[in-house]
């Protein structure tokens, strides 16, 4: 059943995944959905294509291994689950069974970052670092629920594997008007134009960064926001352009370990291309097991919440050349 989406409303990324896969299943008779007992997003797909749906129960390793077997046979398997488990319990299967032969397995899941209040067993905070290290893997982290559908759609035409990271996915703010941006895997989205500083972010913290930008604009700062939803391959040209156009002032905010995620990817570009920065701050999760609390409380506690973002941007803007 088609649903109309409205900009600025809250919507479920899970619903988008379910509907997109149910649609793509018509278009791609070789599309499969595989899940380790996290099939609630896949009800429609399962009902439409019961012979291409497989729930293996609580068994992430075999979920990914089976997906590799399906892909060897010319199918396009989408493995849907919870990322702390898919990215770690099944890491070797992802690396060796999927990436090594470069199979078109799509891994999509929730619980990227300090979300869901499940505690450190249920937070994927190292996942982007792990996935970015894998040969042949494309790595994305999506904040806008509607974008998930577009990324899934684009991924159907990709040869190799892709990792798609979401937050909890039950209720996410629609950030972009349909058609507002040209969304392409591998290209960052300049979501707000500005000249004083660039704030790079992805996933759960995109909406928060928009709020920070509003607050900074109110103080007469011109803030560029880049939704760097593809971490690998990183859009190095955009990083370089932002350095030129925003005075070499960068802030990176992410719901991931501060070292090993987007900030590190950008720092690599800066070093490799010899880009001179005036200021650089990275906000993210420190090397701790974070404990309980809701998303906002945890972001504030660990220094990558709204006020921390505003303060970091002000410090970077004030930095002397």
């Amino acid at each position: 059943m088609p649903v109309t989406f409205t900009f600025g409303e809250w919507f479920s990324a899970r619903t988008v995944i379910g509907q997109t896969l149910a649609d793509l299943g018509e278009e791609y008779p070789n599309l499969w959905a595989v899940t380790p007992d996290i099939g609630m997003t896949l009800v429609e797909f399962r009902e439409k294509f019961p012979d291409r749906f497989l729930d293996v129960g609580l068994a992430e390793q075999v979920a990914v291994g089976v997906a590799a077997g399906l892909a060897y046979e010319g199918n396009i398997p989408v493995v849907s689950g919870m990322l702390p488990f898919l990215s770690m319990r099944a890491l070797e299967q992802i690396r060796t069974d999927v990436c090594y032969p470069n199979l078109p397995v799509k891994i999509i899941g929730t619980h990227g970052g300090l979300v869901g209040n499940g505690g450190s067993t249920h937070y994927a905070v190292e996942d982007l670092s792990l996935m970015c290290s894998l040969t042949n893997m494309t790595v994305t982290s999506i904040g806008d629920p509607l974008m998930v559908g577009e990324i899934l759609r684009q991924s159907m035409k990709m040869q190799g594997p892709i990792y798609i990271r979401l937050a909890v996915g039950k209720s996410d703010m629609v950030l972009y008007e349909p058609g507002q941006h040209d969304i392409q895997i591998g290209k960052g989205i300049v979501a707000r134009e500005g000249t004083d500083v660039t704030i790079f972010t992805h996933g759960t913290t995109v909406a928060q960064t928009f709020e920070a930008a509003d607050a900074l604009e109110a103080k007469s700062h011109s803030v560029r926001v880049v939704d760097m939803f593809t971490l690998k391959p990183i859009d190095a040209d955009l990083v370089e352009r932002c350095a030129k156009e925003t005075g070499g002032r960068f802030v990176v905010v992410e719901d991931h370990l501060a070292y090993g995620g987007l900030a590190s990817r950008i720092a690599d570009v800066v070093v490799d291309r010899g880009i001179n920065l005036t200021g650089f701050e990275r906000l993210g999760i420190p090397q701790v097991f974070a404990g309980f609390g809701d998303d906002e409380e945890l972001r504030n506690k660990y220094g990558y919440g709204l006020s921390a973002t505003i303060e970091a941007a002000e410090r970077v803007i004030a930095a002397k050349k």
Binding site: G69, G74, Q93
Partner: peptide, 30 residues
């Protein structure tokens, strides 16, 4: 064995415990 370097083999293996899950996927596809 590496499927990419030697296409006559059906799967890249070597890390133990990986073959049977892949075989399940292939059998399921069939």
């Amino acid at each position: 064995p590496c499927k990419v370097q030697l296409p006559g083999v059906e799967a890249s293996t070597g890390s133990l415990g990986h073959g049977l899950p892949i075989a399940v996927g292939m059998a399921k596809s069939a």
